[in-house]
Simulated assay, not measured.
Amino acid sequence: MNPLIVYYSRSKNTQVIAELIRDKVDRDLFQIETKEKRLMDCREEVNQQEQEQINEVLPE
């Protein structure tokens, strides 16, 4: 069984790191995508995530 590299990247930074890891360890890569478009402003995104945690919003 081969491990799978799973990542979520809002601004593509994590995607770049995941791809570097994939290239080093030769594993499959899977990107988690949100159903709704996320905010691009980092501070607004953090505020939204805090509210989602408070309201116990789960990803779909």
Rank of each mutant, 00 (worst) to 15 (best):
K37L: 05
R43V: 15
Y8G: 02
R27W: 03
P3Y: 12
L4M: 11
V6D: 01
E44Q: 10
L58R: 12
E60V: 11
R22V: 03
L29F: 03
K12Q: 14
E50N: 11
A18R: 00
R38K: 12
K35A: 09
L29C: 01
V25Q: 03
R38M: 08
L39M: 11
D28Q: 02
R38H: 06
R38A: 02
I54R: 13
V16K: 15
E19M: 06
R27Y: 04
E44K: 11
K37R: 10
D23E: 05
K37E: 09
I17Q: 04
V6Y: 02
V16E: 12
L58P: 00
E19P: 01
N2P: 13
K12D: 14
T14W: 00
P59C: 07
I54Y: 08
R43W: 13
I21G: 02
C42F: 12
M1V: 12
L58A: 13
C42S: 06
V6L: 15
D28I: 00
N13V: 10
S9Q: 04
S11K: 09
Q51G: 00
Q31Y: 08
E45I: 02
N47Q: 14
L29R: 02
R38W: 05
I21W: 04
N13C: 06
K35L: 08
V57T: 12
L39S: 11
V57L: 10
L39I: 05
K12V: 13
V6E: 05
K24C: 05
R43Y: 12
Y7Q: 00
Q53E: 15
Q49S: 15
V57M: 04
I54L: 13
L58S: 11
L58H: 11
E52S: 06
M40E: 12
D23N: 12
D26C: 03
L39W: 06
I21A: 07
I21N: 04
I5F: 00
V6H: 04
E44T: 06
N55M: 15
D26A: 10
